[in-house]
Design a binder for these strands. Structure first.
Lengths: 236, 236
DNA sequence: TTGGGTACGTACTCGCGGTATGTGAATCTG
DNA sequence: CAGATTCACATACCGCGAGTACGTACCCAA
C-alpha cells in the first residue's frame, strides 16, 4: 500500500476495489467526487428528494467529509450548479469561436444553447431548481457570470450592429427578454417528443424574430424612449 | 395558553374573541383559511422554510384538519398555486375585455401581465417555486389552463392577423417563446429598483419586437418551414 | 337510538439536515 | 526525531418537521 506524501499526484489508474476506503485512493479529490455524485442525484431525483446520506454513500465517504468541504446541503447544490453552468458556458464559448458577424453569432449561440438545454443536468439543476434553491438573487449572480453574460454580449452586438445606441438598462431589458425566451424554448425542446424537430422549430421562430428586428434596423426605425410611456400615466 | 382541552369546548353563545377554536366561527371555510395562510407564508418565507405547524397555527386548526383537506404539504401548495393563478388570469381577462385589434390586445395583455407579475405571491409561488415544487410537467398543465392559454390566444391572433397560417407546433413554439420572454421580463420588473420604469422598458422592448414581426408581415415575408433546417444535417 | 359519515384533534414515528466530538495520518516546529 | 498542530475525514447524536394512526365531538338519516 503506497501511502505517498503528495496524495494529489496519484491521479492516474484508479483500480476501484470494493471495501477499500475511498480516502486512500485519492483523498484529494473527495470534494470532486461529492459534487459529481450530488449532481447525478440532483439531476435524477431533484434537490428535495435527494438525501445527504445518499450523496455521501455514493461518494463512499461520510457526512463528516461532506460538512468538512461544504457548508451544508445548499453548499453542495451550489457547487453542483456552478459546475454544470461552467461546462455549459464553456461549450457555448467553444461553439462561438470563429464567428464574426453578430447575426451569425447569435444564431450559432442559439444553436449551442439549444444543445445544452437538452442536457438533463442543466435542465434540472440550473433551470428548474436553481432559482428556487439558490434564491433568485444568487441565481442571477451566477447566471451573470456565465450563460447570461454570453447572451448579453450577443444581444449587444446585434443591437449595436443595428446602429441603435441603447442605454445599459435597455440592453439589460432586451437581454432578459431574450434569455427568458431561450430558456423557455429550451424547456419546450427538452420535453418534446422529437427534440431535433423541436430545435428546428425554435430556431425558425427566433430567426424569424431576429429577421424582424433586422428589417427595422435596415429601414432606420428608431427604438422609442421608454420614458415616453411614463408621461402619459404620470398622474394617477 | 391557547391550547384548550376537549372538555373546554364551548357550545353556548360565544363572543368572537381570539383564542376560541376557528372551527366554531366558520367551520365551513377551514380549507379556505388554510389556503390563505399557506399562500401568505409561502410568499413570505418560501415553500421549504414554511412548516405545516406554522400553517395550521395561522389558521388556528391542527394538522388533523390539514390532512383531512389536503394530501400533504404539496397538496396545500397546489391549492395555493391554483388560487394565485386563478386570480391572475381573471385579472388579465378583465383587462382584455373590450379590445378587438390583435396587436392592441397583445399590448394590453402584456401590460396586465406586467402588473400581475409584480404581485409577490405570483412571483414566489407561481414563477419561482411553482416549477420546482409541482414538477415541470404538472406546472405546465396548470399554466396551460390559465395565463399560458391567454398568451396562446394572443399569439395566435397576432400571427394569424399576419396571414401566416401556421401549424399547431409552430404556434406552440412561438407561444412558449413569448411566454418565456414575458415571464423573464416580469421577473426583471419585480426586482427592479423602479418597477414603473422597468415596466416601461419592457413594454418598449416587446412592442419593438412586435413591430418587427408586423413589418415582416406587411412586406409579405414568409415564415420558413422548420423541416428545411433538418435536411441539411439529416446525415450524421 | 343508533349507525355511519364528516371534520377535525392528539399523540406518535421516523427520516433527514445539521452538530459536536473523536481520530489517525500528515505536516510543522524546536 | 519527539512532540504539537492541523488536516481530512469518521462516529454518534440531536431536533425539527412531514406524515400517520387513532380517537372524538358533531350532524344527519333511517
Amino acid at each position: 500500500m503506497p501511502t505517498r506524501s503528495p496524495a494529489e499526484k496519484i491521479r492516474s489508474t484508479i483500480p476501484k476495489v470494493a471495501g477499500v476506503s475511498r480516502r486512500q485512493q485519492y483523498s484529494a479529490s473527495t470534494k470532486r467526487a461529492l459534487v459529481d455524485v450530488a449532481t447525478r442525484l440532483f439531476t435524477e431525483q431533484g434537490y428535495a428528494a435527494t438525501s445527504l446520506d445518499q450523496v455521501v454513500a455514493g461518494a463512499r465517504v461520510t457526512k463528516g467529509a461532506l460538512y468538512h468541504h461544504f457548508s451544508g446541503k445548499q453548499g453542495v447544490f451550489e457547487a453542483a450548479f456552478e459546475q454544470v453552468e461552467r461546462d455549459a458556458s464553456k461549450r457555448i464559448r467553444k461553439a462561438l469561436r470563429g464567428s464574426r458577424d453578430p447575426w451569425e453569432k447569435a444564431l450559432i449561440g442559439l444553436r449551442a444553447f439549444l444543445e445544452i438545454v437538452q442536457d438533463p443536468s442543466y435542465q434540472r439543476v440550473v433551470i428548474q431548481e436553481g432559482p428556487a434553491i439558490l434564491g433568485y438573487e444568487r441565481f442571477r449572480e451566477q447566471e451573470e457570470r456565465s450563460s447570461y453574460g454570453l447572451v448579453q454580449d450577443m444581444v449587444r452586438d446585434v443591437l449595436e450592429d443595428s446602429t441603435y445606441d441603447l442605454s445599459e438598462e435597455m440592453l439589460e431589458t432586451f437581454t432578459r427578454i431574450f434569455f427568458g425566451a431561450m430558456s423557455a424554448a429550451g424547456e419546450s425542446v427538452s420535453s418534446a417528443a422529437d427534440p431535433r424537430l423541436a430545435v428546428a422549430r425554435v430556431e425558425t421562430a427566433i430567426a424569424f424574430i431576429l429577421t424582424g428586428l433586422r428589417t427595422l434596423a435596415d429601414n432606420g426605425v428608431e427604438l422609442p424612449d421608454p420614458a415616453d410611456l411614463l408621461e402619459q400615466t404620470d398622474d394617477e
